[in-house]
Computed example of a mutant assay.
Amino acid sequence: MNQKLTPSTAMLLIIPPLLWAGNAVVGRMVSELIPPITLNFFRWAIAFAILLPFGFSIFRKGSGLWQSRKRFALLGLLGIGLYNALQYMALHTSTPINVTLVGASMPVWMLLVGTLFFKTKVAGKQVAGAVLSVGGVLIVLGHGDLQQLLALQFVIGDLFMVVASIVWAFYSWLLIQSTDTEALRRSWATFLLAQISFGVVWSGALAAGEWTLTTSQIQWGWPLAAALIYVVVGPAIIAFRCWGLGVQRAGPSTAGFFNNLTPLFAALMSSAFLREMPHGYHAVAFALIVSGIILSSRR
């Protein structure tokens, strides 16, 4: 595995947290319009339809999809069926800022999962990088004020996000297990479609359970339609493509630190929408997060 962090690899790993920051905001905005697990199902069902013309060859005999069906069924369950469903569930009772705060624990879970289940060693620089990066996130969340940080309150949605972060750590480590055939790796569309094919089944089953056990309703309209377009094209297709390629190049441990850019991007988006200029603490936080990324990825 190549652990060197090149500018192109860094860009690949910056795009997903930028799009995921918007995903948290949009997910909160439509939380009253559509049930969370159903939103996740529609998201991936539409993504499946978009990618099908580009990767339909994986369904042909000998493509390798059925040979690796257990692996892709697991990737689909973790990355497609569970992670975003848990995140959308979290946004029903928590705020985007709290959700991104809990998601900032990603580097820690990446290191723990890699050590306990994938027999990787944790270097001291990775621990130091995690401390710096999380410190930058805390500065953003507290707006540079310790009292505001201590006043943050957590709810059940934050627990959902903890589970989601652990799920994503397993997903990221499984991405680099090179057991796929060349036919599946030949195109990013085929590799992602292979995961979505199983993930849609998982998310559909979970959505069916949601409608069976709850009094779910959908309020159709342009706001929901626009939200679906964004979460499908941006956080789903583009972000997953960039994340998968970035993880393969840099490794899950290094990639996990980039996830801490999500709350920073979320804060900057809020500033833009509210027409507020960024503050000094944003610059400090950005410096700490980037320092953590650079430190953890150094040879």
Rank of each mutant, 00 (worst) to 15 (best):
Q3K: 13
P7I: 00
L13K: 08
P16D: 01
L19W: 02
W20C: 07
W20P: 11
A21G: 15
M29G: 09
V30F: 07
L33W: 12
L33F: 11
P36M: 03
P36H: 03
P36N: 06
T38I: 09
T38R: 06
N40K: 09
F41V: 07
F42R: 07
A45G: 15
I46P: 10
L51E: 01
F54K: 14
G55M: 01
F56T: 13
K61S: 07
K61Y: 00
G64P: 04
G64Y: 01
G64D: 08
L65M: 12
W66R: 15
R71H: 09
L74W: 07
L78D: 07
L78G: 10
Y83M: 07
L86K: 09
M89E: 11
A90D: 01
L91Y: 02
H92W: 01
I97P: 07
I97Y: 09
A104H: 04
A104V: 03
W109I: 00
M110S: 12
L116Q: 06
K121A: 03
G124E: 06
G124M: 11
K125G: 00
V127F: 04
A128D: 02
A128H: 00
G129N: 05
G129Y: 00
A130M: 13
L132R: 13
S133G: 14
V134E: 08
V134K: 12
V137R: 11
L138N: 10
V140L: 10
G142D: 10
L146I: 15
Q147T: 15
L150A: 15
L150I: 12
L152M: 14
Q153N: 14
D158H: 09
L159P: 10
F160I: 01
M161K: 13
V162T: 14
V163H: 11
S165R: 11
S165H: 06
F170S: 09
F170R: 14
S172A: 08
D180W: 01
E182A: 08
R185Q: 06
R185P: 00
S187Y: 09
S187R: 14
A194G: 12
F198C: 03
G199T: 13
V201F: 14
W202R: 13
G204V: 06
G204L: 02
L206N: 11
G209M: 06
G209L: 09
E210T: 08
T214G: 03
T215S: 13
S216W: 00
A226G: 06
P235G: 04
A236N: 13
I237Y: 01
I238E: 02
C242Y: 05
G246E: 04
V247S: 08
V247K: 13
Q248A: 05
Q248N: 11
S253T: 12
A255H: 07
F265V: 04
A266G: 15
A267R: 10
M277Y: 13
P278W: 01
H282E: 04
H282V: 05
V284H: 05
A285K: 09
A287P: 08
S291Q: 07
S296M: 02
R298Y: 01
R299M: 00
